[in-house]
């Protein structure tokens, strides 16, 4: 009885082992999968790192460019101020008078002036050195939307946009 029971038990165990072996991966496969997952993670990290470095490098380059342009702008502001001053000296009242006199001009007297009415002429306009403060400024953005919207915004716009321009609709 005992021998029979022992054989049955062994059969069951062998079956269990066989089933287990049939449905369990080989150790080398497990090892291979582990390495694969690890490499995949490393690959993703490398890709992300590369992307980060690339973006950071471009930002740094642009930052340097901004700094360089700003220095250039400052230098140009100095140059402009200097040249504006020099121009003002060359066109100063005293210089202009000298040049006019050298060309044979002289100040006119009240009895030498002929007054002619010019329709629509309202006299000398006021000097405008900048846009008058009350002028309505265009609200159109200076930067193209391509540089400010996300791809989701772009996609939403494309979806919502009419297929044909309204003018072309029958």
């Amino acid at each position: 009885m005992d021998t029979m029971r022992s054989d049955q038990t062994n059969n069951i165990m062998e079956k269990a082992i066989r089933y287990t072996q049939a449905y369990t991966q080989a150790p080398w496969r497990k090892q291979l999968r582990g390495i694969g997952v690890f490499l995949a993670i490393v690959l993703v990290l490398v890709l992300l790192g590369s992307l980060f470095i690339s973006v950071t490098a471009r930002t740094a380059t642009l930052g340097r460019e901004i700094q360089r342009r700003r220095q250039e702008m400052e230098s140009l502001e100095y140059e402009i101020a200097q040249m504006r001053s020099e121009l003002a000296v060359l066109t100063s009242a005293a210089r202009m008078r000298e040049r006019a006199e050298a060309l044979g001009f002289r100040p006119v007297g009240p009895d030498e002036v002929l007054y002619v009415p010019v329709p629509g002429y309202a006299g000398k306009p006021d000097v405008a050195l900048a846009t008058p403060a009350r002028t309505v400024v265009s609200t159109r953005p200076v930067i193209s939307p391509a540089f400010t919207r996300s791809w989701v915004d772009w996609l939403a716009q494309q979806i919502n946009a009419p297929v044909l321009p309204l003018a072309d609709l029958p």
């Binding site: 504006r84 001053s85 000097v127 050195l129």
Partner: peptide
């Protein structure tokens, strides 16, 4: 900062800046 320029009523520079 650059000190502001001073112009006459016709825009002739009366006081400006030089380097």
């Amino acid at each position: 900062p650059a000190r502001g320029n001073i112009y006459d009523r016709d825009g002739h520079l009366l006081a400006g800046n030089q380097i």
